[in-house]
Structure formats: structure tokens, C-alpha cells
Amino acid sequence: MGKFLFLFLVTKVAFLGAQTIDDLRFWTEEFPPYNFVENGVLKGKSTDFLAKVFQKLHAHQTISDVQVLPWARAYQLLLKTPDAVLFTMTKTPERTPLFYWVGPISRSNNVLIALKNRKLNLAGSLANSSLSFGAVRDDAGAQLLTSLGVPPSRLDLTTRADQSLKMLVAGRIDVFAFDETVAQWWMKRLGYPIADFQTVRVLARGEHYFALNKQTPLALVDLFRRAVNEVLAEKKSPQKQ
């Protein structure tokens, strides 16, 4: 029954908008260890996951067809481009109605990071704080800060996480809002000891997804979701001996 439904969905998408999975555009950003470019090759946990989805769907396109863009540009393009997919995206209440969501494929932990020697305490209202905040434009961290009342005048936005970390180390911002795992990856890449930093507040715990433009045909969304769910199921099932 499952295989029949899968074949039915493959046939159905031919009548609605994008014809096959190969008609979808896939975009991503530098968001290690989930997706990042190394020696000209796109790698990472989410990238490997998508490669398995392509195999499930017998796609002609490959990971080399995925376009790597600055996050803010990719995010804005996704809002207005039919048949487009962006990964890896954190699902938040503000973003939920804007896209179709397929996943989750991993967990997210958006936090505020400061230099440990600053000994900052951010238990109170961020809206009334005199600190300067750094974030990546249109990233979940930036959107969470805005939702918590941080005014634009105290929010310094960049295009990449490594830029914000450099500003933090240089004392140009007091705290950086970002995914904790990704921030620590960048610390290592930049040669910064992780022990020099401290998570001073958890903004939100959530999950990462593939996000699809709302004008993508539902039959194609369902096809993609089914393939993603099959890969997820294989990851959870014990390996055969």
C-alpha cells in the first residue's frame, strides 16, 4: 500500500505546477555542521540527508545543483519564489504560516552567547537591557530578539555567523544570538577556545526543517515529505545484521 501511494504521488505531481522533484530549486547557506562548503564541495548533515532524499526520488539533480546563498538573501527569495526549498531552517511561530515545513531533520537551540569574562546576567527583560546584540539578518536569533522587544538601535545584523563572532570577540557587540551548535563550530574554525564563551540565556529550543515556498504544488510537497519521512525512518531503525 505504501509503495502504491508513493507511485500515485509521483504521477499526480505531473498535473500540478512543478512536474517532478527536479523542478524544485534548492537553496542553502553556510550553517555548519548542517550545511557548509569545504574545498568547493557542499557538505554537512543536512546535505547528506538531502542526498538520500534525492536517491529515494530518483532525482536527476544532485547536491552540486544546490545553490549556496547568504541567509538573508535566500530567506527573502524563498518568500517570493514558487517551487523553491531552503534548508536548514528553524521553525518558529513567526515563520510557521509563511512556508510549508518538511521534517524535522534535526534539533535547534537558539541562545545568547557572550564572552565568559564579561560575567553577564541576562535573566531580566531584554527590551530594557542596555547591551548591544548581534545576530545574522533574518536568522531565527534575530527574529527572536525582535519578538522579545530588542529595538533595532541595539541590534547589529550581519550576513554570516563568523562575522558576528568576530564582532563579539572584538567587543563591538555584547552578546550574539544564534544556534548554539553552529556557533561552536564557527568558534573552532576561527580558532577561538569554546571555553572563552558562555551561553547566558536560551532563547528557544526547536527543530530544523526543509522550508518550501507556499506556491509549491501540494502533491509535490507531499511527495518530498514522504521521501524525507522514509529517510528519517531508516535513520531511527536498527541496522540489519
Score class of each variant (00 low, 15 high):
residue 104 P to K: 01
residue 122 L to K: 07
residue 206 G to D: 11
residue 208 H to E: 14
residue 157 L to R: 12
residue 193 P to L: 12
residue 235 K to Y: 11
residue 55 Q to L: 11
residue 216 T to G: 00
residue 147 S to T: 14
residue 96 T to R: 11
residue 130 S to R: 13
residue 214 K to T: 13
residue 236 K to D: 12
residue 103 G to Y: 07
residue 149 G to M: 08
residue 127 A to H: 09
residue 88 T to K: 11
residue 141 G to V: 11
residue 68 V to Q: 06
residue 46 S to L: 00
residue 176 F to G: 05
residue 54 F to E: 03
residue 240 K to W: 05
residue 26 F to D: 02
residue 102 V to Q: 02
residue 52 K to T: 11
residue 42 L to V: 10
residue 124 G to W: 00
residue 198 Q to M: 12
residue 230 E to N: 04
residue 127 A to K: 15
residue 48 D to L: 11
residue 96 T to W: 00
residue 168 L to R: 10
residue 192 Y to G: 01
residue 2 G to I: 02
residue 183 A to C: 13
residue 1 M to D: 09
residue 56 K to A: 08
residue 161 A to R: 11
residue 133 F to K: 09
residue 116 K to V: 06
residue 139 D to T: 07
residue 40 G to E: 02
residue 99 F to S: 02
residue 223 L to C: 02
residue 126 L to W: 01
residue 117 N to C: 00
residue 163 Q to S: 14
residue 106 S to R: 12
residue 152 P to V: 08
residue 142 A to V: 03
residue 151 P to T: 10
residue 234 E to H: 02
residue 46 S to N: 09
residue 127 A to F: 06
residue 158 T to Y: 08
residue 154 R to Y: 03
residue 27 W to E: 09
residue 121 N to K: 14
residue 49 F to C: 03
residue 120 L to Q: 10
residue 149 G to F: 11
residue 142 A to W: 14
residue 41 V to N: 01
residue 83 D to F: 08
residue 172 R to A: 06
residue 149 G to R: 12
residue 79 L to D: 09
residue 156 D to G: 00
residue 27 W to A: 01
residue 98 L to G: 03
residue 94 E to M: 13
residue 53 V to S: 01
residue 205 R to V: 12
residue 186 W to H: 15
residue 236 K to A: 15
residue 117 N to Y: 10
residue 134 G to R: 06
residue 198 Q to P: 01
residue 158 T to C: 07
residue 196 D to I: 00
residue 202 V to R: 11
residue 52 K to V: 01
residue 111 V to C: 12
residue 177 A to D: 05
residue 229 N to H: 09
residue 15 F to D: 01
residue 144 L to R: 07
residue 59 A to L: 02
residue 151 P to K: 09
residue 174 D to G: 04
residue 214 K to V: 12
residue 123 A to H: 12
residue 195 A to T: 14
residue 101 W to Y: 13
residue 93 P to I: 10
residue 22 D to H: 07
residue 171 G to W: 07
residue 19 Q to E: 10
residue 18 A to L: 04
residue 128 N to H: 14
residue 147 S to E: 13
residue 78 L to M: 03
residue 65 D to I: 01
residue 88 T to S: 15
residue 5 L to A: 10
residue 43 K to L: 10
residue 159 T to F: 04
residue 119 K to F: 08
residue 27 W to Q: 09
residue 83 D to R: 05
residue 213 N to M: 00
residue 181 T to V: 15
residue 194 I to N: 09
residue 148 L to K: 15
residue 122 L to V: 08
residue 100 Y to C: 02
residue 213 N to W: 04
residue 189 R to L: 10
residue 210 F to D: 03
residue 179 D to F: 10
residue 167 M to E: 13
residue 61 Q to R: 12
residue 103 G to F: 07
residue 129 S to P: 08
residue 94 E to T: 10
residue 38 E to T: 08
residue 194 I to L: 13
residue 40 G to R: 07
residue 42 L to G: 06
